[in-house]
Design a protein around this nucleic acid. Structure first.
Lengths: 208, 208
DNA sequence: GTCAATGTTCTTGTATACAAGAATCACATT
DNA sequence: AATGTGATTCTTGTATACAAGAACATTGAC
């Protein structure tokens, strides 16, 4: 049996149906949903193929994410409510405490909270939805690069700066801080990938 | 027979299947695709309902579009190729000529070209894809507001400004121009909606 | 008269059977 | 030997049959 869910692999409907003991119909629906979210690619009359984003696409996605988050920050600085501001501070503090305890998982969770509060504080529900979507899609790669030496402390400082700018109503400062915060993640990803490539020969090639 | 594709209407699988002389299966697939693109909403075990974006959501979408286009412009100003620049100019000129002839359809088509060239010239394929997606989703509402008095001439001038900024490599100028270009569309939409509401009593209510 | 419970009907979700297009392999021809 | 053509097989796309859950109506009780 071939390894599963590896880049470029073809997902056979009947095989998957048998594997999960259901008929082809729900499998098809699930695959279509995956295709809509971009994780797999359907070629008409050919089948569906798992498709990890190429390295280049990943960097592009981080660039767009940086801009979306910057927009969230810019709007949030003007529109955030008192209650949301408190939640933002709480998340930032929880991040800090998690970092001091060296609890990466906890840091990760509170980091999520921090960003989602900002998305909603933008007051633009469509923007919040799009940001969450992309955030989720980049999740595994973001998580990966928390391993970079000293990244936790640096990331936390960036959160602090953003939170202060938002609290002060400094729209452009918040935007700048967030754009930078995400861009750095993209940059770190490049470093990780370079190392990964050195050790594993290949990065993440595009589909066959 | 009820009016079709009106806000909140339920789309019955068997009815649609009969209407287009196919079985329920392809109808279901089509409805799922529509749900993924956000044009309809599926309630589990209840059915799918047409769902026009609410007025507020529409404005939010235009705001995000403005930011995405601005990002495209900023990148394009730095990355555009000679060939793409020529196509951008050609589209702008075609817009101008269409306007002078008063050919709204032609203007509309060339306007599409203009923007799509910019998306691709950004050199960020993910950004281009997302921009195209949202652009398409806003299409009917953009088209609507070309009717605003004097909008065509104004829009054309904005295109000119953007094209010049891109040609000059002025990233921030291009970004500003595009953000403004789209924002104006959002503002005009508000005016149109206000009038629409005055004459028709209701705007576009959220689903039942 | 109103409310609740139960049964009927209607609609979606799932399984399976069938059709049509794509890939592959064999064989023939150049 | 290489390439093109045809047949076979495999896989997706579509149709239909069946099951299960939701809405609705009817009937009974308070």
């Amino acid at each position: 049996m071939a390894a599963e869910f590896v880049e470029g692999e073809r997902l056979d409907e009947v095989t998957l149906a048998a594997r999960f003991s259901v008929s082809r119909t729900p499998v098809r629906e699930a695959l279509h949903a995956l295709a809509a979210s971009g994780l797999v690619e359907t070629l008409p009359r050919r089948g569906v193929f798992v498709r990890y984003p190429s390295f280049i696409k990943l960097v592009e996605m981080f660039d767009v994410m940086a801009e979306l988050e910057a927009m969230c920050g810019r709007l949030a600085a003007r529109r955030i409510t008192e209650e949301e501001l408190e939640r933002l501070e709480a998340a930032a503090l929880a991040c800090e405490s998690a970092m001091e305890r060296g609890d990466a998982d906890e840091y990760y969770r509170e980091n999520e909270r921090f960003h989602h509060v900002l998305y909603h504080a933008s007051g633009n529900s469509f923007l919040a939805e799009q940001s969450s979507r992309l955030h989720k899609r980049l999740q595994p790669f973001r998580r990966l690069q928390l391993r970079v030496r000293g990244r936790l402390r640096q990331s936390m400082q960036e959160h602090r700066d953003v939170q202060k700018a938002v609290a002060a109503g400094d729209a452009e400062g918040a935007a700048r801080g967030l754009r930078r915060h995400i861009s750095i993640q993209g940059e770190n990803l490049k470093d990780l990938m370079a190392n990964f490539a050195r050790y594993h020969q290949r990065t993440m090639p595009q589909k066959p």
